[in-house]
Design a protein around this nucleic acid. Structure first.
Lengths: 216, 216
DNA sequence: CCACAACCTGACCAATCGGTCAATATAATT
DNA sequence: AATTATATTGACCGATTGGTCAGGTTGTGG
């Protein structure tokens, strides 16, 4: 019985793995195709080919193209939000904003497809994640604005408009993902090296931190 | 004969006007639809409806969907490049970069659709304007980098990486167009007022100019 | 007024799309 | 070994797409 239970657990895990692995492969392929072709330009056939599965199999795991897309957008939003943790529990703007830039730049480098999908979604009027913008993002933004305002009130940084500072952080860090192709083209068609990514990070942090008066 | 010539000139101008006016209407509709739906999601029928013309009429003026798209992208690129003039003939970084931010922010406000089409095009790997990136944009960028470097060498601004400063300028100013929907949602769903646009401009300029050491 | 060119458009077409389904194969349970 | 649940897939379908075209209308120069 013990043996049976053991086998049962193993094989049960195997079936779970099939589903999880296939969903993972499909989501990865979808993220890339949606990023490169947009929602309208992406086809289930293209995603299926990239995932190495028959198209009908995709519909077994994700009922519709929109369901699949929604999952992709949701996943990148989770990653995006998690980067916010760098902001919290920071003693001051230098550490908090510095760490946030680092985290967002790392996301741009490691999840360029997801970043593009998110950008594309917002650019087209956020048809499927409008509620996220109005609830979660709204609350997150209000919280950070309050934190920045507190730093200003405590004299830890120059009095700048916290909202526009946030927008500047988002825009600048996302640029390296969303406009990565342009950045690469202007870099002789080559992807940025480790050293170049470090220089980009440092440049962004230097200008912004000095811009808010926490660097000489 | 004089009368005939006069009439001829008028009527000839009228025919030219028909073409020019229809092309204008079609391009305006196309810019909006491409921006809101992406190239793949846009349909000739939707553009035709928005332009108030039969679909077949669109194909009379623009042979294919891609031709139409190409023209839209080309037009916004021209506007984008023209904003660069603000950069030139400036005595120093404070005036040059300040004027550039102003110009780019005005473009984001007045041509939000075009900005989105451009962003979308680059995000999807610049399938139709790759040559622009490699030639015109490349030369423009190299020129401005040299100009910024000259300012640095002359001690007119802090020594920052000119390339990443440029990227920051592009990203930040474009953000208000490309992510305009997000900005609007976080502004209680209302478009920015004149006053808010002015505040955005001032915030961006203050942070960046202080960031490069030309403001106390 | 005539002849020619430019402009307009409803009807149509092949291709492709997202999605369905019945039949089959594989894995898990008893 | 039999049964059930899950996973797989080729073939198919209605709907929509970009694009075509023949036949019409309108404007233009002689």
């Amino acid at each position: 019985m013990n043996e049976n239970a053991q086998v049962s657990r193993i094989t049960k895990a195997k079936r779970t793995d099939i589903r999880r692995e296939n969903e993972r492969v499909i989501l990865a392929a979808a993220e890339k195709v949606f990023a490169e072709a947009g929602f309208g330009g992406a086809t289930m056939q293209l995603i299926a080919d990239m995932a190495g599965l028959p198209k009908a199999n995709l519909h077994y795991y994700f009922a519709t193209k929109e369901d699949l897309y929604r999952k992709v957008v949701h996943d990148i939003f989770e990653i995006w939000l998690r980067a916010a943790d760098s902001f919290d529990n920071a003693p001051g703007p230098k550490e908090g904003i510095g760490a946030y830039v680092d985290a967002k730049m790392d996301i741009s480098r490691r999840h360029p497809f997801g970043s593009k999908v998110w950008a594309s979604e917002v650019m087209h009027g956020a048809p499927v994640i409008q509620d996220y913008l109005e609830t979660t993002l709204r609350e997150w933004t209000d919280g950070r604005i309050a934190a920045i305002q507190r730093w200003i009130d405590e004299g830890k940084m120059a009095p700048v408009n916290p909202r526009h500072l946030l927008y500047m952080l988002w825009a600048t860090t996302q640029h390296y993902a969303d406009f990565g192709h342009q950045v690469e083209t202007l870099n002789d068609g080559r992807a940025l090296t480790d050293r170049q990514w470090r220089e980009a990070k440092d440049s962004v942090k230097t200008i912004i931190l000095r811009g808010i008066g926490v660097l000489s």
